[in-house]
Write a protein that binds this DNA or RNA. Sequence first.
RNA 1: GCGCCUGUAGCUCAGCUGGAUAGAGCGCAGCCCUGCGGAGGCUGAGGUCGCGGGUUCAAAUCCCGCCAGGCGUGCCA
Length: 552
Amino acid sequence: MLKQELARCLRQAVVEAQQKGALALAALPEMLIEHPQNPEHGDFSSGLPLKLARAMRMPPIAIAEKISEYIVPPPQIDRLWVAPPGFINFTLREDWLRTQVEPILANGESYGNIDLGKGKRVQVEFVSVNPTGPLHVGHGRGAVLGSTLANVLTASGYAVEKEYYINDMGNQIDNFGRSLYARYQQCLDKEAAMPPDGYYGNYMIDLAKEIVQEQGDRFLSLAESEAASQLAKIGVAKILQGIKEDLELLNVNFDTWFSERSLYQGGQYNKAMELLQSRGYIAKKENATWFESSSLGEDKDNVLVRSDGSPTYFASDIAYHYNKFVERKFDLVIDIWGADHQGHVPRMKAMLKALGQDPEQLKVILCQLVTLRRGQEIVKVSKRSGDIITLREVIDEVGPDACRFLFLARSADSQMDFDLEMAKRQSADNPVYYVQYAHARIASIIRLAEQRKIDYSQGDVSLLTTEPELTLIRRLILLPEIIERVALTLEPHHLPYYSQDLATIFHSFYKQCRVVSNDEALTKARLKLVRATQIVLAKILRLMGMTAPEKM
RNA sequence: GCGCCUGUAGCUCAGCUGGAUAGAGCGCAGCCCUGCGGAGGCUGAGGUCGCGGGUUCAAAUCCCGCCAGGCGUGCCA
């Protein structure tokens, strides 16, 4: 990328100036090249001289001048100059800029892809909600975040696998089974008490009714624990099916649905525990089995097997990550969890050390909780207590594209209020539609060109000389940088901002530059530019998992 | 108590490893259709960047201390 090339030129210039004695010797910091926000400061700039001033004991402006004497700029650069208090600014050659429309057209939907990952295998595990009830809005946020990240990493040259971890055993499932059994009996006019901490949502009653309808009363003849366990299995399958459908509506899908239970049948649990044992991290205390994480710098140990013999969630997760790293050998694993799992992160890192893995291979993204509201009224989203607004209802009300855009537009670190009223009210006049409108508008222009049988394949991009045209091109060629940045920081919220910015620049261009006109040559050139814009808009929308409509 | 996240325009939020005049959307006040989609364009008002110190040529950004909100701190997940 040009940015990196400029950084190299800059470094080389400093080194050469130092060798020739023009600049004092000093350790060089990272060469930082940025896009100044004020266009008068050029396309790129560096504040390097400001950073060197102290070590070189020289005024930054003088350093800047010295460095600029030694810079051999790449051919894409038109000119460079020094600006107080010590910046070096660069502008791109306009004739080079114009030619950049061609590679976009040539690459089509693969334009913007980069080779950052070099084929490394990365797993993104996300959503992974307990299959004990329908998804709510908070889950939607993680789903959108994860699927978008997977899209961007794929575009960045990683071999990506998307996975959903199904917690299909343990306390929650037992509880779910007992709750379902109670509802089932009630459905058949039997007296039955719900567990005090059971799942009280109305969907449990519907679920029970459905099972009665399909399978009759045959579970009544079974022992209570057997009935609960069989019903749990059936209920989990049904809930999971619903979750899958909801996610598909949001354009979220997975390569693998991984069962927790399978870790016990497949031997991963035993192998992982033996490995920890042999490495000396296991202890027995008070009838329970502990992971001695405190020996790895953790503030406390953690229970793996309870005194009643049942493994904890943490034990399963150890087996699961043993499977991810040791058996499936992923180079990188990204887990996306809700902020309420933050306490889990340090012990997972400790566990990886104990397994002999590099903890850096695991990236945990905690996304902050979503509070759902309708205007002033806060809607509670507790699954067990019952009254929840499901993700499904939100998608139905707001629409999948708008949902995705709204979720994506905030960084994972910040809590968000998802106001249903606002989301719906905005839907008429909303950044989501603003971006999609730009795409549709272009589609309409292209349709017009087709109607008039204009073949612009030989259009001459050197005719693109006005300021709105060049500004548009400058934005288009930012795409690879945006993709790289998201892949590096794992922060997809830059995508909606870029898309909106690009749409703004396009709409402004559109107002100022007539595309299909009497000037045949200019028409063809501009059709190329407009088509390139459409390609970039479609790409960014696709990365965000949204549709790029031809009409709206 | 301790740990993590957050606090930027009326509202919802950006602000890239400290950099040149702190940005966007919505809302508000105006203006622009004798040409390709007005779901559009243009202009304006609106800010003690939670508060107080510190580091630096330079702090919304880094450090320390407060204040406020969220989450965590289980033989729950």
